[in-house]
Computed example of a mutant assay.
Amino acid sequence: MTTTKNIAVLGGDARYLEMIRSFSKAENVNIELVGFDQLKEGFTGAKQVDFEELDVSKLDAVILPIPGTDDEGYIDTVFSDKQIQITMKWLNQLPKHCIVFSGIATGYLKDAVKKADLKLMPLMNRNDVAIYNSIPTVEGTIMIAIQNTDFTIHSAKVIVLGLGRVGMSVASKFHALGAKVYVGSRNKADLARATEMGLTSFHIDHLPAYTSECDILINTVPALVVNEESIQQMKSHTLIIDLASKPGGTDFDFAEKRGIKALHSLGLPGIVAPKTAGEILGSVILQILEEEKLGEE
C-alpha cells in the first residue's frame, strides 16, 4: 500500500527553492508552502497557502528554515513579508509521528518540540549533510581566498585548524592547488591522518609558532583558538577565513586592531551553490521520510 507523505515547508532561503523542486519530482509527496507568496514562479505539485490554512493534523513533516527559530519562535521568511511564529499551541496540533526539520536546533525550538513530544531533526548535525555540504563550502572558501588576496594559492602557506568533515576537505583541496598546508588539531588520529596526506601537522596549542609565516588561516573549530597571541605574530597581508559556527573561533576584535582581515564566513553552501545545497537537503529529507515509513511497516 502506497502512503502519501504530507510535507509543509515554512519559510526558507534560495536553497529551499531547489529542495522544493526535488520534492515536486518525488512520487507520493504532497507539498504545501508557507512564506513564499512573493515568488512569481510556481512549483508543480506544490500548493502555496497561508500559515493559518495548513491542516496540521495531516502533516508528516514540517520543514523550518536553516536557522530554525528565534527565541520567540519566529522564523525567517525571505520570500514573504508575513511573520510566522512556531508556538507550543501550534506544535501540539501536529501528529506525534510528524518530524520537525530545521538546519540547526535553537534553544527555543529544542524545548518546544520536546514538550510537544515530537521528533526534531537538525539537518546540519547529520554526518551525511555535513559531508555533502563540505564540497560547496570548500569551493566557497577558495573563492573567498582568491577574492581577498593579491597572491596565488599555489605556494601560499595555509593553516587549517580542525580536521573534521569540513577541515579535511579544505586541507585536501588547498593542498591539491599547490598550497603548503599546515593542519592544527588536538586529536592524535587527525594529526596522523594529516601526515599521511602529505601535510604538516601540529598540536593546535602550538599555533602561535606557525602564524608568523602564514598567508591564509582557515578555522573550522567552534572555540576560541585563533587568539590574540596567534594573531599578534601574523603578517599584515594574512587572511583569516573562519568557517566555524557562531561566534566563531577567532578574536575578530583584536584582528581588526592589528589590521588583519578576518572574515566569518557562514552558510557558504547556500551562498555559493544554493542549487546544490537545496538538492542535498531535499534528497536527505526524502531519504529520512522513507526510512521512517519502512520503520513503521
Rank of each mutant, 00 (worst) to 15 (best):
25 K>L: 15
43 F>V: 01
183 V>P: 07
6 N>Y: 13
183 V>M: 08
187 N>H: 12
132 Y>D: 14
262 A>E: 06
246 K>Q: 14
77 T>P: 03
16 Y>R: 11
186 R>P: 00
35 G>T: 11
88 M>I: 06
179 A>P: 00
258 R>C: 08
258 R>L: 03
245 S>C: 06
149 T>P: 07
27 E>T: 12
60 D>N: 03
73 G>N: 01
136 P>I: 13
38 Q>G: 05
267 G>A: 15
238 T>H: 03
201 S>Q: 02
60 D>V: 01
38 Q>V: 07
143 M>L: 13
11 G>W: 11
162 G>L: 00
144 I>Q: 08
277 A>C: 09
61 A>Q: 04
165 R>F: 02
155 S>T: 13
147 Q>F: 01
140 G>A: 09
264 H>W: 13
251 D>Y: 05
170 V>E: 04
61 A>N: 01
221 V>K: 02
205 D>M: 10
24 S>H: 12
53 E>P: 01
297 E>A: 11
263 L>S: 14
207 L>S: 09
84 I>Q: 13
122 P>M: 02
163 L>A: 01
33 L>S: 12
107 G>W: 10
120 L>I: 04
249 G>T: 10
52 E>W: 09
284 V>C: 10
86 I>A: 01
264 H>Y: 06
211 T>E: 05
164 G>Y: 05
218 I>G: 13
24 S>C: 14
52 E>C: 04
179 A>Y: 00
62 V>L: 09
222 P>C: 07
62 V>I: 08
8 A>M: 07
149 T>R: 13
3 T>A: 15
292 E>Q: 15
243 L>A: 11
197 M>Q: 12
59 L>E: 03
32 E>L: 06
22 S>N: 14
150 D>Q: 14
199 L>K: 09
93 Q>N: 11
249 G>L: 11
278 G>N: 03
12 G>E: 04
248 G>F: 13
206 H>N: 11
204 I>L: 10
146 I>F: 15
68 G>Q: 00
82 K>P: 08
98 C>H: 13
